[in-house]
Design a protein around this nucleic acid. Structure first.
Length: 481
DNA sequence: TGAAATGTTGGGGCG
DNA sequence: ACGCCCCAACATTTC
């Protein structure tokens, strides 16, 4: 009578994949049965509760991961509660002697994981953490002086010089663990919205999960990468990767994406300019995560102290008009409605709407950050905070505050025919291109023929941009002086 | 990974 | 022929 081997636990977090998953690989190499778990932890202090759109994504991604693991006979258990308690209990129930996970890097997550590791070690369970979610561990990229970079270009140069690891080559040979241990039912977690089901339109745009991520990566390299450098700013064209949510949940690793892009470049399938431009966008993801690691207050506090005194306006009506896509500026409204309807927004338009909220309405960037956190399927604590501070001018390597986007010119430059506006603001669809980004200048006969009545079928502008620009510059001057 | 204001230049119309 | 003005086109500066 030999005792069955004690299983190994793999704790999934932001790495909902089987390929290039160092924690899963390391567990597989132990040659004992594997039991995996995902913990919905809304109890440990310091962890940010997921936003609505992210919860929708997580539900489907977990369903996909469970199905993918089931093919190997590996169970995915779902548990809810403080991770330290849940894992300690699970180790007891399963008899597991070791746990593997891939590291997280935000301050709250680091604290939580440190506490979990301590609790498990105390209970005699070995914990091993791995590098799986970034190209580089944040503490490994340093300036000549030994500190963290605050400027992107030298940061990325240092990254390129350091070189990242290729993805793990082999899919691990997975061996499932028999377990009678209970799991929550995914449906009981209430991750999906109902009454109203605002995510009803999401499935037409997204396939969460590892398979969907790999398919999206291949499709991007085939159809989108060529021309990426010049067309990535065009919201009316399909030249962005749309991989951000897949990366956020780790359905595909950054290493895998980077390797695929490099391969396309090195085999001549993609030109160097397009490939390198896309790689640098992965670099911005890296930069944001490293910044948050080194500057843990990034999501809450202005990185540049001079902004602490900035006289933000309280403008609940303006904020609501912005959220609903009723500002009267077509490119802004198109973006905000794309966000609500599909859970994403084109990157260029994100900058335009953020500039509008911060500079035209003078609303604190944190209110915009909170809305994006709730509505974006790719909402990422590091990227979101770093990017909002970038637009506000308060962050690292940020756009200067006085770089104020003109929503009309941005629309005309990047959506020249108005196709993007027409898609998302259908009440303007019949307006000629000449006026699509400035309907208030259209002759009344043109508006009439397009079936538009300003103030009735489409709002008047909630603020005059020229006035708002001057106001913003004045406010900025005041913080400096 | 801006935009607007201001400055400069050069061609053409015109007295 | 010449100087003057206008202004588009482009460059530079400023916010």
């Amino acid at each position: 009578m030999t005792k069955p081997p004690s299983p190994v636990l793999v704790w999934f977090r932001d790495d909902l994949r089987t390929a290039d998953n160092p924690a899963l690989c390391a567990a597989a190499e132990r040659g004992v049965p594997i039991i995996t778990v995902f913990v919905l932890d809304e109890a440990t202090p310091g962890l940010r509760r997921l936003g609505g759109a992210s919860r929708w994504w997580l539900h489907h991604s977990l369903a996909g991961l469970r199905a993918g693991l089931a093919k190997h006979g590996v169970p995915l258990l779902l548990r809810r509660g403080p991770a330290a308690d849940v894992l300690a209990a699970l180790a007891r129930e399963t008899g597991a002697a070791s746990v593997h996970w891939n590291r997280r890097y935000s301050p709250g997550e680091i604290a939580a994981d440190t506490a979990t590791k301590a609790a498990l070690t105390q209970a005699g369970v070995a914990v091993t953490s791995h590098a799986g979610n970034l190209l580089f561990e944040p503490w490994t990229i340093r300036t000549g002086a030994g500190g963290p970079f605050r400027v992107f270009t030298p940061f990325w140069k240092a990254c390129l010089a350091a070189g990242w690891q290729p993805p793990l080559r082999e899919n691990p040979e997975l061996r499932g663990g028999e377990t009678s241990v209970t799991s929550d039912a995914l449906g009981d977690w209430g991750l999906l919205p109902r009454s109203p089901d605002w995510a009803a339109g999401f499935p037409a745009h997204w396939t969460p999960g590892e398979q969907g991520a790999r398919a999206r990566l291949e499709e991007f390299i085939t159809d989108g990468l060529s021309g990426y450098a010049s067309l990535r700013d065009r919201p009316d064209r399909p030249h962005t990767s749309r991989l951000s949510a897949h990366l956020r949940f780790g359905e595909v690793s950054a290493r895998t994406v980077a390797a695929a892009i490099c391969q396309a470049r090195d085999t001549g399938a993609a030109n160097e300019r397009d490939a390198d431009k896309f790689l640098s966008e992965l670099g911005w993801r890296e930069f944001s995560h490293h910044l948050l690691y080194h500057f843990p207050t990034l999501p809450h506090d202005n990185l540049q102290p001079k902004f602490v005194a900035f006289a933000w306006r309280e403008d609940p009506k303006g904020l609501e008009a912005w959220q609903k896509g009723l500002t009267g500026y077509p490119i802004v409204d198109a973006g905000m409605r794309e966000l609500w309807r599909t859970g994403t927004m084109h990157n260029r338009v994100r900058m335009v709407v953020a500039s509008f909220l911060i500079k035209d309405l003078l609303v604190d960037w944190r209110q915009g950050e909170a809305w994006f956190w709730d509505t974006l399927v790719d909402a990422d604590h590091a990227n979101n905070a770093a990017s909002w501070q970038w637009v506000a001018g308060s962050g690292a390597d940020a756009a200067p505050f006085f770089r104020i986007f003109n929503p009309v010119l941005q629309g005309e430059k990047h959506d020249p025919d108005g196709a993007y506006v027409r898609t998302h603001v259908p009440e303007l669809a019949r307006l000629p291109a000449k006026y699509i980004h400035r309907p208030w200048e259209a002759p009344s006969s043109t508006l009439f023929e397009a079936g538009i009545e300003l103030g009735a079928t489409y709002p008047h502008r909630i603020v005059d941009h020229a006035m708002a620009r001057d106001r913003a510059l004045e406010a900025f001057k005041a913080t400096r002086g």
